[in-house]
């Protein structure tokens, strides 16, 4: 099953709606609650990053079968200059507005790594960022 959701940049009121819908889908499929939680947390962090850091928004694409879920969160820039650095706990370029919303601790990417079975972050400053989270659905 494939699903596609739009992510609007800068719109913190809507941030999380895509992740919330994926969470509901996993619940309907009776996936183990621990796996649902870690998957939701990982994709929510990725979704919030598009709202917080990307210009022009992005998309969340979910591909679910009985064994695994693959979620791709893509945007069109500005991209991440140094991915290794961005993966470090505490590294953040968040704006004051993002910080006032309760984000910008530089914990999102490390948190995504912790909560995904496989994590791929592809980014460059001329294109955009693509985060691919794969989680296995059988406990």
């Amino acid at each position: 099953m494939k699903f596609e959701f739009d992510i609007v940049d800068g719109d913190f009121a809507k941030a999380g709606t895509a992740s919330s819908q994926v969470k509901h889908l996993l619940k309907q499929l009776n996936v183990d609650t621990k796996i649902i939680k870690k998957t939701t947390v990982a994709i929510y962090e990725a979704e919030v990053n598009v709202v917080a850091h990307a210009i022009g928004g992005g998309k969340l694409l979910a591909d679910i079968n009985l064994e695994r879920i693959v979620v791709e969160v893509v945007d069109e820039g500005p991209g991440i200059e140094d991915i290794a650095r961005a993966m470090e706990v505490g590294f953040s370029t968040a704006s004051p507005q993002v910080i006032s919303m309760g984000f910008g601790a530089g914990m999102g990417l490390p948190n995504m790594r912790k909560n995904s079975d496989e994590l791929e972050v592809i980014s460059d400053v001329s294109g955009g960022t693509r985060v691919v989270i794969t989680n296995y659905l059988v406990a």
Partner: peptide, 8 residues
């Protein structure tokens, strides 16, 4: 007061 803290 940090949402990412709650998410850990």
């Amino acid at each position: 007061d940090l949402l990412s803290d709650i998410l850990t």
